[in-house]
């Protein structure tokens, strides 16, 4: 019985250590791999890290979409009702991308304050507003910055 018990104990220790290491590694890599959502207001206030992959989003400002006539390139602005940020994207925009629609873009902010998107998402439901965008809009209002003129076109 003794060796059996010893073996079991080793096994349990081995398991606990293994699980511990696994969880630690998981948490560490998780903290390295999350994509923060940054609102246009935060970007305007300089709170967004430059050169790190983040997500940005808001409503596409009406009349702001410019397309390149040669390629697929597109440039547009998004707003949270308080500040605007310019996004450039070279690729096919999603079906529901249109002016006034809420979108989320994944990409990096460059030193000129332009957001270079590698991916643009808009959900397949016109009633749907990406939850982060919804939050950003609410926050922009809560902040009391009702200077909606700034968000105008």
């Amino acid at each position: 019985m003794k060796p059996q018990r010893k073996k079991r104990l080793t096994l349990i220790l081995f398991l606990v250590a293994g699980v511990g290491i696994a969880v630690g590694l998981l948490m560490y890599s998780l903290s390295q791999n999350i994509n923060l959502f940054i609102t246009p207001t935060q970007m305007a206030d300089g709170e967004a890290p430059v050169g790190r992959t983040i997500r940005a989003g808001g409503l596409v400002v009406v009349g702001s979409v410019e397309r390149d006539s040669e390629s697929l390139g597109a440039k547009f602005k998004v707003t949270d009702g308080n500040a605007e940020v310019t996004i450039v994207y070279d690729g096919i925009l999603p079906d529901l991308f249109r002016e006034g629609q809420g979108i989320v873009a994944m990409g990096q902010l460059n030193t000129d304050g332009v957001f270079v998107a590698s991916e643009v998402l808009a959900k397949h439901d016109e009633n749907y507003m990406p939850p982060e965008v919804q939050d950003a809009l609410e926050k922009a209002h809560v902040d009391g910055k009702q200077s909606l003129e700034a968000a105008r076109y």
């Binding site: 409503l59 009406v62 707003t79 009702g81 002016e99 006034g100 809420g102 507003m129 965008v133 919804q134 809009l137 609410e138 209002h141 909606l148 968000a151």
Partner: peptide
């Protein structure tokens, strides 16, 4: 265009 909606915080 959803202008008024935007000002009303419609989501």
């Amino acid at each position: 265009d959803g202008q008024l909606g935007l000002e009303l915080g419609v989501y």
